[in-house]
Design a protein around this nucleic acid. Structure first.
Lengths: 181, 181
DNA sequence: GCATATAGCACTAAATCGGTACTATATCAA
DNA sequence: TTGATATAGTACCGATTTAGTGCTATATGC
C-alpha cells in the first residue's frame, strides 16, 4: 500500500502492493506436492500430471521458485525439483515475494535497510505514516507465520466442517532429505 | 486462492483472490481523513484537496464505500461524506471486500453460507483443501483485526524509527457523531 | 429555480497477468 | 561422443483488469 506516499508529482512505479493470484496458487500446490515427497526429486512433468497444473506454467513457476531459493532444481535426465529447506521454513511471505514481488503495505517501508533514510516526500501531509508502518509489520508477521508445513499438515480425520480448531497443534516435522550442495 | 480447485474443465471466474491496489490505498487515506473529522460531513472536493487524491477517482471510491455502507453520503449543497460507524468497527477486511471484491484464500470457501454443500470438484485430488481452509480463516481473522482506528491512532511523539512497539496500547475511542438515519 | 452535492452508469487507455515459445546448458546413459 | 531429457533464462503475445474520465439523474439548501 502506498498510503498517501504515491501522490507526489513524480509517477510511482509500484501499483500493486499485495496480490494473491493464480500463480501463487499454482506455486503453493506445487510446493505442497514437493513437501509430501519424502525423498528424491520430482520433475516438472511429474508434478504437472500429479497436481493437474498446466505444465508450461508450472515450469515457469518452478524456475521462479528456484531463483528465489525455495526449491532446488537438478538438471539432467534424472533431474527434477525438491524443497531447498524444510517446509517449516517456507513461509507464505517468502512465496508471495518470490511469485508476486515484494509485499508493501506502505511504500516507504520497501527499499532496503536504509529505507528510513529516504521516506516519502509527502511525509508532512501523510499523517498516517507511522500507524501504517505498524500495520505493515503486522501483515508481514502474519504472512511469515503461515508456513508450508501448515498447508501440508493433513488432518485426514473429520472431513465434516465442524470447527475442530486444532490451532495449537505442534507442526509435524516433515522428513527432509539432507540439503547438501 | 484457488488451491487446486480451479483446475477443473470448466473455466473459473475468479483469478484474483486478494489484492491491495492503489484504489484501496486511496480509500484508506480518505477514510482516515473522515475518521479524524469529529463532526459534520466532508465533501469529496474537500477530501481531495486535503488528501491530494485526484478528485474524479476519489468520488468513485467514495461511492463504492457508500454502497458498502462504510460511509454515509449526504446530497445537496451542504452535503458530503461521514463515516457510517465508529472507526473501530471498520476493518481492513471490510474495506478490501468493498473495493477489491471478496477475499478468497480458497475458492471453496467463497459463496455464501451453503458453500460447504458445493465444494470444488477436485476435492479428491486436492489434498490440501482442509489446511487451506484453516489458513483462509486465519487470514480473514487478521484482516478483520486491523481497524481504521488503528490507522488513525497517531503517536505524534517519537518521529524517529526506534521501535517503541506500542502494540498493547488500547485503541483510543475516536469521538464519533451520532449515527442517526 | 439555481447552485452544488452525491448516485449510478458506461466507457477508454494503459498496465498487468496468464500462458507460449524458443534457446542455452547440465546430466545421464548407451 | 552422441542423444535424450531435464532445468535455466528470457522474450513475447493475447486477454483481462485497472486507473481514470465523462455523462446523466437525483437530492438538498438558499
Amino acid at each position: 500500500m502506498l498510503i498517501g506516499c504515491g501522490l507526489s508529482a513524480v509517477p510511482v512505479r509500484v501499483n500493486k502492493m499485495l496480490a494473491l493470484t493464480k500463480k501463487t496458487d499454482y506455486a503453493l500446490i506445487a510446493l505442497s506436492y514437493l513437501a509430501k515427497r519424502v525423498e528424491g526429486v520430482m520433475s516438472a512433468r511429474e508434478l504437472a500430471t500429479a497436481s493437474r497444473v498446466p505444465l508450461p506454467i508450472l515450469t515457469n513457476i518452478l524456475k521462479a521458485l528456484a531463483r528465489a531459493g525455495m526449491v532446488v532444481g537438478e538438471r539432467g535426465s534424472a533431474g527434477g525439483y525438491c524443497l531447498a529447506k524444510p517446509a517449516e521454513s517456507i513461509s507464505l511471505h517468502e512465496l508471495i515475494t518470490a511469485i508476486e514481488g515484494p509485499v508493501h503495505f506502505v511504500q516507504c517501508v520497501s527499499a532496503g535497510p536504509d529505507a528510513h533514510r529516504n521516506p516519502c516526500e509527502l511525509q508532512s501531509c501523510c499523517s498516517i505514516r507511522q500507524p501504517a508502518h505498524r500495520i505493515h509489520d503486522r501483515l508481514k508477521e502474519f504472512l511469515e507465520s503461515v508456513t508450508l508445513a501448515e498447508l501440508v499438515d493433513d488432518p485426514t480425520v473429520s472431513v465434516g466442517l465442524h470447527l475442530v480448531h486444532r490451532e495449537p497443534v505442534p507442526l509435524r516435522q516433515t522428513p527432509v532429505r539432507e540439503f547438501v550442495r
